[in-house]
Amino acid sequence: MELDEWWSRLSVRAQDWLTANNGDVVPDWVLTEIVAAGGDVSSDAGWVGESDADGWHLSDSAIDWIEATANDED
């Protein structure tokens, strides 16, 4: 499932966190919401980032999409 398909299923709190902290490590509670909304973090979808020692990240394209969405850009 693509980011634009599960985004609207997130709570406003999770959307707000992702918008305000765009590019940061995604906390477990937000990651749990993404998965519950249909986001498969083990897929090869363009929004899936990677895990490192700090935690899980969204991809650069997802970060760009969230920024554009927050700014009401197409």
Rank of each mutant, 00 (worst) to 15 (best):
M1A: 10
E2Q: 14
E2F: 08
L3Q: 02
L3E: 02
D4Q: 15
D4V: 08
E5P: 01
E5Q: 14
E5H: 12
W6T: 02
W6A: 03
W7A: 03
R9C: 06
R9K: 14
R9N: 15
L10E: 14
S11T: 15
V12Q: 12
V12H: 11
V12R: 15
V12K: 15
V12C: 05
R13W: 10
A14D: 01
A14C: 14
A14L: 08
A14N: 04
A14Q: 02
A14H: 04
Q15K: 14
Q15V: 04
Q15L: 01
D16I: 04
W17Q: 01
W17C: 03
W17Y: 07
L18N: 02
T19Y: 00
N21Q: 04
N22K: 05
G23Y: 00
G23D: 00
D24F: 06
D24R: 04
V25I: 08
V25R: 00
V25N: 00
V26C: 01
V26Y: 01
D28G: 13
D28Y: 07
V30T: 03
V30C: 02
V30D: 04
L31S: 10
L31C: 06
E33N: 04
I34W: 01
I34D: 03
I34T: 04
I34R: 09
V35I: 12
A37V: 01
A37L: 03
G38D: 05
G39S: 06
G39I: 05
D40C: 06
D40Q: 11
V41S: 09
V41A: 10
V41C: 13
S42R: 06
S43T: 03
S43R: 02
D44N: 08
A45Q: 11
A45M: 09
G46T: 04
G46N: 10
W47L: 05
G49F: 09
E50F: 14
S51M: 12
A53Q: 07
A53P: 00
A53S: 11
A53C: 00
A53N: 07
A53K: 09
D54L: 14
D54K: 11
G55M: 09
G55A: 11
W56P: 04
W56R: 15
H57C: 04
L58I: 08
L58P: 10
L58K: 11
S59R: 07
D60C: 00
D60H: 07
D60T: 09
S61F: 06
S61H: 05
S61R: 06
A62L: 11
A62K: 07
I63G: 10
D64Q: 12
W65R: 06
W65A: 07
I66C: 14
I66T: 07
E67F: 14
E67K: 15
E67C: 15
E67I: 14
A68K: 10
A68V: 11
T69C: 10
T69A: 11
T69E: 09
T69P: 00
T69V: 13
N71I: 05
D72K: 15
D72I: 08
D72P: 01
D74Q: 13
